[in-house]
Amino acid sequence: MKKTVIVLLMILSLSACSNEQENIVFPTDKSTALKPIMQKQDSIYGYKSVINEEDILVAISINRFDRFNKTKIEEKITKQIEKQFPEKKVLVTGDQKIMWEVNTIIEKKLKEKELKKSIEKIKLLSKEET
């Protein structure tokens, strides 16, 4: 009994440590203009982004205590990206669900048509209020 508890605690503490966030922009060749903007944000510890012809989706991981200002941080980063890419629609969100969805896009390496479809799906999802 005691041994199992110790093993469980060890698994918990170890898995918590290995949860490092990586910064990815998909597709990689379009990342040059976005990277410097994201790097100077000090209230986030990671981001995953998807770019196509019309849209930019950025899912950010906000620091634990900065989550109280979630909407303000999202607005701030959105404005900075919109300045850099005036012709594109920008969606910046700290939502975990969107982060997972962006991650599946990156893992599946979707091509243009499917990419557009899933980006539309994510945008609809982020507008959902019920």
Binding site: D95, L125, S126, E128, E129
Partner: peptide
């Protein structure tokens, strides 16, 4: 609910 259904962080609370 967020993993297996189309709920976001904001809507999964209901």
């Amino acid at each position: 609910y967020m993993r297996f259904f189309p709920f976001t962080e904001g809507t999964a609370s209901n």
